[in-house]
Design a binder for these strands. Structure first.
Lengths: 229, 229
DNA sequence: TTTTTCAGTTAGACCCGTCTAAATCCTCTC
DNA sequence: GAGAGGATTTAGACGGGTCTAACTGAAAAA
């Protein structure tokens, strides 16, 4: 049996591997989990003993296939829970993260199955993040780019919002920016800010760190894919 | 902040106080929680330090009002979860207990409120047990008696089933015995068994320990109460 | 190549919840 | 009212997850 903490470490390593280049440094992991480096070291040892991570002393860690499976399982729980809380319990998009962060470690397999069934095996969560399948195969990230990387006049579809801060999310939601919405880049200001125009006609100004967190696609790509199916 | 374990101890003390006479002996508590007496002693010390129990060395413990509030909160979580799992997620009546036993310690107040709202503030859980109100006032147990205490020919309404064993519950559910069902005592056998007849005409034989766990009321009492309202 | 710097690890401590073994208190019986 | 017997507590240990302080490796700078 794995503790909730162990699961948190595996999940963090998984994310860091996707976003940076493996192996993951002890201090990076420690920062992510808000613990001190020695704490991370000792946890890494434990995970290595259980065969969940590959460790090279002074270099860092990578997940083994077993470790990755555990990480995907936890992420599946998390994203199913977020979807469930939003769709079935009336949670606001912005407030599901913390609740799911706790519950993901405590639900049974039966619960997971029933929630997935109740939601009709959803493929993405309310933030637009893909939900790992029941078989826990590695996730294919939907190809997307940051809103910040597009020029003025471009029409874009919001695919994912990779922000977890409740206040920021509430603001974005209130402004009408959430996965599935289309918008046009109105102005890229040289002061670290992007302004977008929604179909409603309203414009919303977004500082760079937000524009980086908003993942977008070109609407016609979607049309093509749908056509393919 | 209280740990899940502390909550378990408080809940156990609460139940034992209701069923036996306070104060609760260390060994009784230890048995209930399946730990050794020294373990219970040290936990009792911690709870006493926090003002959640009143302790008299070598005598036992009782809950303080604060401790009782915590216990009621946990019980409210548990019973709301059982109801939710049954009604919204399609769990079988017999399998909700274990899941709720874990989750009760991990849901937020927001989750509690939303579940209660989704269920329309239910007053009893699937086992017929009363759900503490949001204000966490002490619960008034519905007056009921054990099926085992009634004579042949008596018509009874099943109010609560105080059994948590999944196999036994599955059997009872399959046999048609669950809260809300009416039945007639068919035979009280001198070998520690009671046979009841359901409205479907079927008879079901129940050994004493089961007949003790089934809490019943007289159907006309219910009618009167409804009349009063 | 040697030194310096800094990340990473080891050492040792603490709190939690648990245990076993040993001491101690309470109470019931004679 | 003195033991005997049983329940309770104390003592000391351990694993989990964390910390600080001290040490050690590795890699960049000189």
């Amino acid at each position: 049996m794995l503790s909730a903490k162990m699961e948190d470490y595996l999940k963090a390593i998984y994310r860091l591997e996707r976003e940076g280049d493996p192996p993951i440094a002890t201090s990076t992991l420690a920062d992510t989990l808000e613990v001190t480096p020695p704490t991370a070291t000792s946890m890494i040892e434990k995970l290595a003993d259980r065969g969940l991570v590959e460790r090279e002393k002074y270099k860092g860690v990578t997940l083994t296939p077993e470790g990755e499976t555990v990480a995907l399982e936890v992420i599946r729980h998390h994203r199913l829970l977020e979807t469930f809380l939003t769709e079935e319990l009336g949670y606001d998009w912005s407030e599901v993260h913390e609740e799911a962060e706790v519950l993901e470690h405590h639900i049974s397999e039966a619960f997971e199955r029933r929630v997935a069934a109740a939601l009709n095996d959803p493929e993405v969560d309310p933030h637009g993040d893909p939900i790992p399948s029941d078989s826990l195969d590695s996730i294919d990230d939907v190809p997307a780019s940051a809103l910040a990387d597009h020029g003025e006049g471009t029409r874009l579809l919001v695919a994912r919002v990779r922000d977890r801060d409740p206040e920021e999310l509430t603001y974005l939601d209130g402004a009408g920016i959430r996965p599935g919405v289309e918008l046009v880049v109105d102005e890229v200001a040289p002061i670290g800010m992007v302004t977008v125009r929604l179909d409603s006609g309203e414009t919303v100004a977004l500082p760079d760190h937000i524009a980086d967190a908003i993942q977008v696609r070109h609407p016609d790509e979607i049309a093509e894919e749908v056509g393919e199916v």
